[in-house]
């Protein structure tokens, strides 16, 4: 029986929920694993030990911010600037946490504290998709997704740090472009939402301008803020999706 492998006993469906969440994380693990390996390999190349590389995945758990972090480690930049850059890349989580906060607030505090620790772009997207379908977010389902992705990210980072130099041709394997494809698919899956197209266009253009002018970590926050500000300024829709 699979049930005895899972600690939750308060709800008969907890094991099923956990497994359902874990299964949803598998495509994300496939998409993210090249980045975990790449992160580990690059971290060691930039002077981190295998332990430090794994610790970084264990404690920060934010792919893009970890990549930016080790990039700066290699350049001997002031420590506080590295921390600030990590914060900037991860700032988008403030928006995720605000958006799903009402759905998670029915959980006990410790579950919420844990839940926010494993909150990532793909998990956020899955929560929104489930919420879109009008379904309640169960902690076992959420942690099934979050913990599975988290554990594999940490382990794969460690493996990457160990064996990183052995990857023959990361480019030929499309490693650098798997996550953009994944996020593109998620963006497309939101197309039924009100204001979807204007938001995508404005955020896209604003992020590209920021990317070219301010530089890399900030294009995420600036571009997203532009798209969200647009919606805040547009007339609020009262009824159906396409009424004004």
């Amino acid at each position: 029986m699979t049930a005895d492998a899972i600690p939750q006993e308060d709800e008969p469906t907890a094991a099923t929920e956990f497994w359902a969440g874990a299964k949803l994380s598998f495509p994300v693990i496939v998409a993210a694993s090249p980045f975990a390996f790449l992160f580990g390999a690059m971290a060691v190349k930039n002077g981190l030990s295998v332990f430090e590389a794994t610790l970084m995945s264990f404690a920060i758990y934010g792919g893009a911010s970890q990549m930016v972090g080790i990039d700066l480690f290699g350049q001997h930049i002031e420590p506080w600037l590295i921390v600030l850059s990590i914060f900037a890349v991860n700032f988008r989580h403030v928006l995720y946490s605000a958006a799903i906060g009402r759905k998670l607030s029915v959980w006990p505090t410790i579950q919420q504290a844990l839940g926010y620790f494993v909150l990532t772009d793909p998990l956020y997207a899955e929560v929104e998709r489930k919420g879109e379908a009008g379904r309640h977010i169960a902690f076992p389902w959420y942690i099934g997704f979050g913990a599975t992705l988290y554990v594999s990210w940490v382990i794969q980072s460690g493996i990457g740090a160990y064996f990183g130099n052995l990857i023959p041709d990361p480019h030929a394997l499309g490693m650098d472009f798997l996550l953009p494809i994944y996020f593109f698919g998620i963006v497309l899956s939101f197309r039924a939402r009100p204001n979807w197209l204007p938001v995508v266009i404005v955020s896209g253009i604003a992020s590209l301008i920021a990317y070219k002018t301010v530089g890399s970590p900030w294009h995420v926050s600036i571009g997203a803020a532009a798209g969200v500000a647009l919606v805040a300024l547009l007339p609020v829709r009262q009824g159906g999706e396409f009424e004004r």
Partner: peptide, 8 residues
């Protein structure tokens, strides 16, 4: 609008 904006 956050998810579409950020992921874009």
């Amino acid at each position: 609008a956050v998810p579409a904006a950020v992921l874009t």
